[in-house]
C-alpha cells in the first residue's frame, strides 16, 4: 500500500514539476523571437557570497566585447560602479534586464556611476546576444576563462557554472555599498538599484 502511494506521489510530483518547467516566459520580448532558451524555473540562489557591505570590492580585469580589457581598479577614485552579473546570454530574464538599464543611463549619470555587465559566456556568444539587444552604453565583460573566476571571487558562482543574478554597488573608494543576490528567475526592480545609487551622492 505504502509503495503504491509512493509511486502515485512520485508521478504527481513529476507532473507538477513538468508543468512548472513548461510555464511560459513572462514578458518575453518579441525582439528575440524564438531564440531564447527556455530554462524553466531554476533554484533561486545557488551560492553564498562571503562578501558583505563595507568590504573592499575584489579587483579584477576581464576582456570586454568591444575588445579592451577592463579593470575595476581604473574606476577607483573616479566613478561609482554597479556590477550586474547575469547568469547567461540567451536566457529569459537576462535578455530583458540590460535593455532596461540601457534607457536608464541618466540615473547612472546623475549618481556619477558606471555600469559593468558580466556573464560567464565567451565573447562571441556575448557579441551575438548584444547585437540582438541593440547598442548598449556600458561595457559587457566576459568571465569565461578561467571559467567564472571573477564570479567566484565575488562568491556568486553557482554549482551549474553560471553566475547568480546579482547587483553590487561599489563606491568611489572601492567599498561595497549594496549587494543584491537576486532570485535567478526574477528581474530586480529598477527602483531599488536607483535608490541605492542615490544614497551614494547624498
Amino acid at each position: 500500500m505504502l509503495t503504491k502511494h509512493g509511486i502515485i506521489l512520485t508521478a504527481l510530483c513529476g507532473i507538477v514539476s513538468l508543468l512548472l518547467c513548461l510555464s511560459p516566459v513572462h514578458g518575453a520580448s518579441e525582439q528575440f523571437k524564438e531564440k531564447i532558451y527556455k530554462t524553466g524555473i531554476l533554484k533561486p540562489i545557488d551560492s553564498k557570497t562571503h562578501l558583505k557591505v563595507g568590504d573592499m570590492a575584489p579587483d579584477f580585469t576581464l576582456p570586454s566585447v568591444s575588445g579592451e580589457r577592463v579593470s575595476l581598479g581604473r574606476y577607483i577614485g573616479q566613478k561609482n560602479v554597479v556590477i550586474s552579473f547575469v547568469p547567461a546570454a540567451w536566457t529569459p530574464v537576462c535578455s530583458d534586464q540590460w535593455p532596461g538599464y540601457n534607457i536608464a543611463k541618466s540615473f547612472f549619470d546623475k549618481s556619477d556611476a558606471i555600469l559593468l555587465g558580466i556573464t560567464v559566456d565567451n565573447i562571441p556568444t556575448l557579441y551575438a546576444w548584444i547585437e540582438e539587444m541593440g547598442d548598449l552604453w556600458f561595457p559587457v565583460l566576459s568571465d569565461f576563462w578561467p571559467h567564472g573566476e571573477v564570479s567566484k571571487k565575488y562568491g556568486v558562482l553557482r554549482t551549474d557554472g553560471m553566475s547568480e543574478r546579482v547587483l553590487f554597488v561599489i563606491d568611489k573608494k572601492g567599498v561595497i555599498r549594496y549587494i543584491d543576490v537576486h532570485d535567478i528567475n526574477k528581474r530586480p526592480p529598477l527602483e531599488i538599484l536607483i535608490q541605492e545609487l542615490e544614497k551614494l551622492t547624498k
Partner: peptide
Amino acid sequence: FSMYCPHCQK
C-alpha cells in the same frame, strides 16, 4: 509593452 524590451523601446 515592457520597459525592458528593446523592440518596445523602438
